[in-house]
Design a protein around this nucleic acid. Structure first.
Ligand SMILES: [Mn+2]
Ligand SMILES: [Mn+2]
Ligand SMILES: [Zn+2]
Ligand SMILES: [Zn+2]
Lengths: 142, 142
DNA sequence: CAGGAAATGAGAAGCTTTCGCATGCGCTGG
DNA sequence: CCAGCGCATGCGAAAGCTTCTCATTTCCTG
């Protein structure tokens, strides 16, 4: 199962790597920080080091298995690469993150890059706003 | 001249603040880091502390005089707020930054936020790509 | 199953940014 | 024009996140 994804990435199959990958799968569309991955695994009784979490997440990112985002809080959050690109809208009050994909925007971006002679790579689009959730009015993340 | 902008922000007119504002004006559309502002002022013979540069830039940002961006290099860059919003396209090879504004994209963003019940604040859109400049093939920033 | 390479954990260190504090300076009102 | 208060400054220390170093362990091939 996950063994193959790790091998395909040219990495040895080890307990930390398996556990991190499983955890990210369980997280679904949630965006977790390295610190959070670390604490969740510790809480699960795993023996793992924070440095390993960072290393593995970076390797997974390089292999295209996970994506890293920076939502102007100063630290990175990660999510499994589900193969379909999306952008994010973040509530600056409660920290909630929703995903969206707008083909009009995607298309305009390609055009803008082309117009200016850029070979387009990827992009980062984050909308900041305030949601209208009952449970919103305050929370902290990480 | 600049005195007024600083006073309007509710800040005392001091040498560091004047120098930083002047320097940002000279920078035009260039995006400079706090460290860079600091070094440029030192090179100009100014006596200034790095902490002051950070403090002043943060105050200017709060006052709406400057904008702060994070182009995933891990540090912030600043530019004078010229009153008209724009987004950025960054060359991942040479670090060049160009600005653009696309009303179609702006409009779609407002619609997306509205559809999901968000009171929209601002947003960050950065396109990463490779430019086709002769002088491009490698440079480092900061 | 042995040997060599790759991975791990723990702590140190790196980098950007902020803080704390003693000193200095801008500004108001006298 | 000046005195005095309070904001601003510079410096070094420290914070917060991330990466590095290195001794030790684990994986994997043969
Ligand atoms: Mn996402
Ligand atoms: Mn700009
Ligand atoms: Zn909210
Ligand atoms: Zn370039």
């Amino acid at each position: 199962m996950e063994d193959q994804e790790i091998r395909k990435a040219g990495l040895k199959v080890t307990a930390p790597r398996l556990k991190i990958l499983e955890l990210l799968e369980k997280c679904g569309e949630r965006h977790v920080s390295a610190e959070e991955v670390y604490r969740l695994l510790l809480a699960d009784g795993e023996e793992i080091g924070l440095a390993t979490v960072y290393r593995v997440l970076t390797q997974f990112e390089a292999a295209g298995l996970v994506e890293r985002h920076k939502f102007e809080d100063g630290y990175s959050v990660f999510e499994l690469n589900r193969g379909e690109h999306h952008d994010h809208i973040v509530c600056v009050t409660c920290g909630k993150v929703e995903e969206f994909l707008d083909e009009t925007i995607e298309q305009r971006q390609r055009e803008i890059a082309a117009e200016r002679g850029y070979e387009i790579g990827d992009h980062s689009l984050i909308i900041y706003g305030r949601c209208r959730d009952s449970e919103c009015p305050n929370r902290s993340k990480k």
